[in-house]
Structures are given as C-alpha cells and as structure tokens.
C-alpha cells in the first residue's frame, strides 16, 4: 500500500512538471487544435470517398463508421498526449546513454520512463473524438444505452492498456535496434489501421489485427459496444486479452532491460 501511495505521488510530480511546461507554451493550444482538426479531416476524407461509392461496407454504414473514427481520434489524443512523448524521450535516453541515470533511481524504471513527459494540449483530440460521437448519434437519431456506455468505458480502459503495452514493446525493440528515430513513426502507422472497422480486413490480416496487434479491440469493439451490438463474451475476452498482452509486454521489457549495456560501457 505504501508503495502504491509513493508511486501515485511520483506520478503527481511528473504530471505537474509536464503541466507547468505546457502552461509555458499556451499558444500551442491553438496549434494543437488546428492540427487535431487537420488529423480528423484526414481520418474523414477517405471515409467520405469510400462511402461515396457505397452506402454500407461489410455491414457498417457511414454513421456507424464515424463512431470507429471517433474512437480512433480519441485514442490518438491519448497516444500523443500521454504515451508517444515518453517514447521519444526513451529512445533518446537509449541513444545517448542517459538511461543509466533513470536506472539508478530508486523507483521502477518502466514507471519512470513511461511518465517522463505528457503533452496536455494534445487532449484536444479527445474532444474531437467526443464531438464525432455526438454527431454520429444525432444523425443516427438514437442514443446509446447505459450498459453500452459502461461497456465502452471498460473497453476504453483496456484499449489504453493495450496501447501502452504496444508502446513498451516498441521501446523494448529500441534496445536491440541501434538507429531508432523511426520507431515512433512505426508505432503511429501501425495504429493508423485502427481507423477502419475491423470487419473490412479478411483472412490473415483480420487474425493479426485481432490477436497479434489487437487493433480491433481498440476501436471497433468500443464502437460496437456503443451501438449495443457487442456480445458480453467479447467484452470479457477483451479484458482478459488486454491483461495478458500487458503481462507479455512487461515480461519483454524486463528481458530487454537486462540486455541493455549503456553507451559508455
């Protein structure tokens, strides 16, 4: 219990440091807002083009797909605000050999590197995501049920856990691959596939996106939950699967950190 309290306090300190830094660059809020709009536009433009050709694809109408894009945008906000900045910092640590200083500190290294940097202004994306939900449901002419909303919130937690675990896996790769400037880019581009309802992927690709890189769990499942179409068994499967995924990631991290030899030694 003492340990949990200590880590919560540490998290508070790290958040405060990032928060103060963000307040220094208030103009960024506007810039972030504009880029968020631009990214939402990229996510939507192909959607307009695709649904210009067909009224529904693999059982998904335009409005229903908007929900998937909404979850995608929301998670992108989480990813870019809370996960990616630390990833960039971590890659830099490995490259420069300053990871030694992190490892020397009397706290869990994974915790320290994962919380070293937050970009609060990126949260604008979360707002764009919620805006998309509202628009989609207004044009569907109905609202999600309470259990549906609850299920989607549970799935939001599991998706964040999966995203974070994927991040840990990518960072672990940074221990083995020397020149790693592109890892963040790889991470976002894998995530990009999550903007489409997972049922458009057939065969092996669909298997990969459900079980290996669980993108389907992150955006399609919560959208289905909001629509009230997600079976309970899938929900349970998502929770169990994401916890398993997170444990694997933690194990890989511990393995890689053992592999780490600092830049100077």
């Amino acid at each position: 219990m003492v340990n949990v309290k200590r880590y919560l306090r540490l998290l508070g300190v790290q958040l405060k440091a990032s928060g103060l830094l963000a307040l220094q660059y208030r103009a960024d809020f506007l810039a972030e807002g504009l880029t968020s709009l631009a990214w939402t536009f990229t996510a939507l433009a192909p959607l307009f083009v695709v649904f210009g050709a067909r009224p529904s694809i693999e059982g998904w109408t335009f409005q229903e797909s908007l929900l998937v894009v909404g979850w995608f945008t929301l998670l992108q906000g989480v990813l870019e605000g809370a996960i990616s900045p630390s990833l960039t910092g971590m890659v830099e640590h490995i490259r420069k050999g300053t990871l030694d200083f992190v490892l020397l500190k009397p706290a869990d290294a994974q915790f320290l590197v994962s919380t070293q940097r937050f970009l609060p202004w990126r949260a604008v994306n979360v707002l764009s995501g919620v805006g998309l939900f509202v628009y989609a449901f207004v044009s569907l002419g109905r609202w999600p049920s309470l259990p549906g909303i609850f299920a989607s919130l549970v799935l939001l937690a599991t998706s964040m856990l999966i995203l974070y675990s994927m991040w840990i896996l990518v960072v672990s790769a940074a221990f083995f691959v020397v020149k790693v400037d592109n890892l963040t880019y790889l991470f976002t581009s894998i995530f990009d596939a999550a903007r489409w309802p997972s049922s458009v992927f057939r065969g092996s690709l669909s298997w990969v996106f459900t079980f290996i890189i669980p993108l389907a769990l992150m955006t399609t499942f919560p959208a289905l939950a909001l629509l009230g179409r997600l079976p309970w068994t899938w929900l349970v499967g998502a929770v169990v699967g994401s916890v398993a995924f997170a444990s694997v990631a933690r194990w890989v991290w511990l393995m890689s950190i053992r592999h780490y030899t600092s830049a100077s030694s």
Partner: peptide, 18 residues
C-alpha cells in the same frame, strides 16, 4: 522498420477490396 511503417497502401488495399 521504415518499410513496415509505410504499409498504409496495404491497409488501404484491404479496405478498398472490401
């Protein structure tokens, strides 16, 4: 890694095939 990061056309291929 770069090549893996530029696989978006393959994703789009899956989508447009659908």
């Amino acid at each position: 890694i770069w090549v893996l990061a530029t696989t978006m056309p393959l994703i789009m291929l899956a989508l447009w095939s659908a």
